[in-house]
Nucleic acid binder design. Sequence first.
DNA 1: GGGAATTCCAACTACCGAGTTGGAGTTTGC
DNA 2: GCAAACTCCAACTCGGTAGTTGGAATTCCC
Lengths: 197, 197
Amino acid sequence: MAWDTQRTRRLILDAAVAEFAAQGPEAARMDRIAAEAGVNKERIYSYFGNKRQLFAIVLTKELERLAEAVPLDEETASDLGEYAGRVFDYHRAHPHFIRLLHWEGLHTPAGEPVAAQAERTAHYADKIAALAAAQRSRRLNPGIPPQDLLYAVIALAGWWFATPQMQRMLMPGLNDDPDGRRAALVRLVRILSRTDP
Amino acid sequence: MAWDTQRTRRLILDAAVAEFAAQGPEAARMDRIAAEAGVNKERIYSYFGNKRQLFAIVLTKELERLAEAVPLDEETASDLGEYAGRVFDYHRAHPHFIRLLHWEGLHTPAGEPVAAQAERTAHYADKIAALAAAQRSRRLNPGIPPQDLLYAVIALAGWWFATPQMQRMLMPGLNDDPDGRRAALVRLVRILSRTDP
DNA sequence: GGGAATTCCAACTACCGAGTTGGAGTTTGC
DNA sequence: GCAAACTCCAACTCGGTAGTTGGAATTCCC
């Protein structure tokens, strides 16, 4: 039978995303990734180097996916609440990403460079530019610097996923109500971004 | 010389807070904690049980400290922006806490109970009640459910500390400007909480 | 002062996990 | 068809780490 090395690579990466997101880069086990992917552990090392490198590759891939899935242009920027809702939806459908982002944040010492830093900086710059454009055409509250608006969207859309244990403590009545949380998020961001205060 | 077991316990806990916050519960090393505290490793096990238990104790202690340091009553609730600023100040002065909270969030499987859950739930309930009271007396925007307001404050005040690597990418121009970030936070929360929109 | 209880610690064990190796099977190019 | 190059894998090494132990030093209490 013919080799299918691309498939092997993909199997490893898929398993690695799940393992790293679930366990973090320290507690993740290369043996588990190999077993989950159904390949030999040595394949991981020959294809992707060591554990750190694999984590960086996994993170970069997930960043690309997010960037594709939730674009922000002047049009979408004019309803920022709904945009935040879509970011929330993405996290809900792909909970791996934001966990990886937080693992990175917690494990990266201050000042240390991170994976794909230049691309990510450019990516945020694009979003900020889109927000600024929407502000100039008065479809978005111009009273808040666009960086701060983007920060608010990212933080408000993401916090629940990073600290899920807070849900039960902060909202003890309802046990897990993602639709309600999404609606609240959209409302909050709409208040921040409405043009006429 | 007389034994001073209380001092030993405190030394261990202080070292453990620093080590767990910096490295996370997986990468934290009991040997490092012992060395940093200047005591024998065995002391940790006899006083605090195993690594997991020590982490839970550390987290609970830090939660108590935060609760004391940043109380929220009807009075402070009426300037919620400034309250958010003070939460930010606390994180800046004690960066350990929010890192521990995120380590907990990432390492706790969904539905699993967490340390001091009942106390924390009650604590949040108090804060929500204070916000609701300020809303009734019209010193705070009553158009947003108090849980959502509290969520927004926590998320907006905390996000930078959980993902510090994003600072350079989201705000590439200025290299580390905590005062500016604090001011932006206060502004965002004021917009959310102003009574007359 | 002496015996029980407690505190301390150097050295140890047992295990686990990242990374390696040597060789067997498979494909490709000619 | 054959050799070079590549792909696969079971089994291994080796360093590190959570947790333990046995005993020495110290304190307490009568």
